[in-house]
Design a protein around this nucleic acid. Structure first.
Lengths: 188, 188
DNA sequence: CGCCGAGTTGAACTGAATCAAGAAACGTGG
DNA sequence: CCACGTTTCTTGATTCAGTTCAACTCGGCG
């Protein structure tokens, strides 16, 4: 659980009292491989910190579904738009490996917002970070080649990427599995 | 200025008092065509509502610069990440036509957050909307062809698109100007 | 009037999509 | 723990959309 505190303390001053209150709301839950955390139509009730594991975000499609994002260890995962607006999700979130989460419910988060000073700062920070990530992603999709995107993903997440089936990575990068197989061959 | 109130009232209940306070902070400013609103390195000081006009967001590149976004009438425009974090922007914002803006400074917005109930709701709402737009954009770049993206842009903004030089649209869609010229020919 | 940037068009090239088949890895039930 | 069937990955051949380089047209502006 110190992981989470460390994570926050990169961005905030967090005193023991605030941390006590915050962490008292966190519930640890473990999920097996291929477990669906969120389905289209469901309303996301959790903001979760990934202690261990990998999850993917996807939208089902006829042939191959569209994997548009991953989340790794030491990061937050949530159907964030559904969570924020408390409206039905439009996509799936699924574990790819055994996954250990620390979960915070929507109601508990609202309470944290109201009862602590740091709450709102944390919430705003989370939104900002997500937004920044999406801008990065937009620029990557517009200006980089699939090969460059693969290399970047690879150099950022060397170990973790090994556990992700190639076809999901291909989709995330924006090419077919065949194309990624060839990219892989020519850069190795 | 009623435009702005209407815009908000699609999402919120806004009483006269709140509106008075909010609108007292808005300053109208007019800009000519090709005016640079924000440069890399500058810190964005404004959140602006576009009464009339079109602006583009871009990053300069060797040959052709990378136009990654537009904003149209009746919408907000801002170097939003720079604005939120009060750190230097990484991109340009430029007017493409004569543009009339209602501007709100960072400090005034902070005051609105503190002094009105509705302030935080508006701020959160803005973040959420931006985030949702970026997810849409991500899915569009991953799953649609340039031709489909062009058609969508075209059907959403028929009139406005006429005023945007083809080469900027091409960049936004993710192809060269030559390719967009051919796409245009084959669908008309 | 002449220049310059923007758009169009052509030709050759390239990287990815598609279709198809085979190899490897994985999971499940006996 | 092996055997089988399914899924995932690889490889090949073909097709296609977009890139690149280049030349030409058009319209606006000094």
């Amino acid at each position: 659980m110190d992981l989470i505190r460390n994570y926050f303390e990169k961005s905030f001053e967090l005193n023991d009292q605030e941390w006590e209150f915050f962490s008292s709301k966190l519930i640890k839950r473990d999920f097996p491989k291929k477990h669906i955390l969120l389905k289209p139509g469901q309303i996301e009730n959790y903001l979760s910190f990934i202690q261990k594991g990998i999850v993917r975000f996807y939208i089902p499609k006829e042939n191959n579904d569209l994997t548009f994002s991953f989340a790794f260890e030491n990061n937050f995962v949530s159907g964030y738009n559904s969570f924020l607006t408390q409206t039905p999700s439009t996509y799936y979130i699924e574990t790819l490996t055994e996954t250990n989460l620390w979960q915070l419910t929507y109601d508990d988060l609202q309470e944290i917002y109201q009862k602590t000073k740091i709450g709102n700062a944390i919430g705003r920070h989370a939104s900002e970070q997500l937004f920044l990530k999406k801008i990065q992603r937009e620029l990557s999709l517009l200006s980089e080649t699939p090969e460059q995107r693969y290399k970047n993903l690879f150099s950022n997440q060397i170990e973790l990427i090994k556990h992700i089936p190639l076809k999901y990575i291909a989709s995330y990068i924006g090419v077919t599995p065949q194309a990624l197989s060839r990219i892989r061959r020519r850069i190795s």
